[in-house]
Each structure stands twice: as structure tokens, then as C-alpha cells.
């Protein structure tokens, strides 16, 4: 079954005082666990958050045009699905992943002969 890399991309967090309350966080936690349970067969690697990074090329290293990359890429995970649509369904179901300020890029991981 093909695997897909899901990369979260979000707009820089706004500075409004919109931090979730403990109850809201607990609700998020419960939703996330429910989602994980529902798709447990397809979640190959729940991945994690991505931090600072730098693009390394032949050119001298600068923050260059990619300076904003650390603000835009939030996290990644790997899912298994029959096709792209199936992978999108899993990603879409993940709480908080797809919202007004955040979206997810779903990319097939090609394996030779796979």
C-alpha cells in the first residue's frame, strides 16, 4: 500500500490572546486520540513537530529566501492509503490540522516498483 508524507503548513501564529484553555486542550486531546484510534491501521508514523531548519545548497549558506520556512512547516507524519484521496481523508480527519490558519500537504512517497 502506498505511503504518503503529510506536511503541515501554517500561517505564522497571530499574537492575539487566543490560547486554548485547559478544557479546550483536553477536548483536543480526546479528539486526537479518537482520530488516532479510527485510523490506527493507516498511521505509519505519527511524526512530530518540526523545528528550525536551513536549506543547504552549493551557494554560501544564508537564511535567504527560505527564512520563513520554520514558521510555515509545523509538523509531519506518514500515512498509508490506497491512493491520494484515501490519504487526504486521513489527514483531513486529524484535529487541528486543517483550519483557517493551517493546511496540510499530502505527497505520495514513491517507491521503486511499489
Amino acid at each position: 500500500m502506498p505511503k504518503f508524507l503529510c506536511v503541515q503548513r501554517s500561517l505564522p501564529a497571530s499574537d492575539e490572546r487566543s490560547a486554548p484553555s485547559p478544557s479546550e486542550m483536553q477536548a483536543m486531546y480526546a479528539k486526537f486520540n479518537a482520530w488516532r484510534e479510527e485510523f490506527s491501521d493507516q498511521l505509519v508514523d505519527l511524526g512530530g513537530k518540526l523545528g528550525d531548519g536551513r536549506l543547504v545548497t552549493e551557494e554560501p549558506v544564508t537564511d535567504g529566501p527560505f527564512v520563513e520556512i520554520k514558521e510555515l512547516v509545523g509538523g509531519y507524519m506518514i500515512v498509508e492509503a490506497a491512493d491520494l484521496d484515501g490519504a487526504i481523508e486521513v489527514a483531513r480527519g486529524c484535529p487541528g490540522l486543517v483550519s483557517a490558519r493551517s493546511g496540510v500537504e499530502v505527497i505520495e512517497i514513491q517507491t521503486p516498483g511499489g
Binding site: 483536543m28 486531546y29 505519527l46 513537530k49
Partner: peptide, 14 residues
């Protein structure tokens, strides 16, 4: 404390 709870939400399920 808020940061710790958020970290729990992100880490515990994994």
C-alpha cells in the same frame, strides 16, 4: 502551564 498542557496534547498521543 499552558505550554506544558499543549506539549502533552502533542506528545502523549504519539
Amino acid at each position: 502551564v499552558q505550554a506544558a498542557l499543549l506539549a502533552a496534547v502533542e506528545t502523549w498521543p504519539r
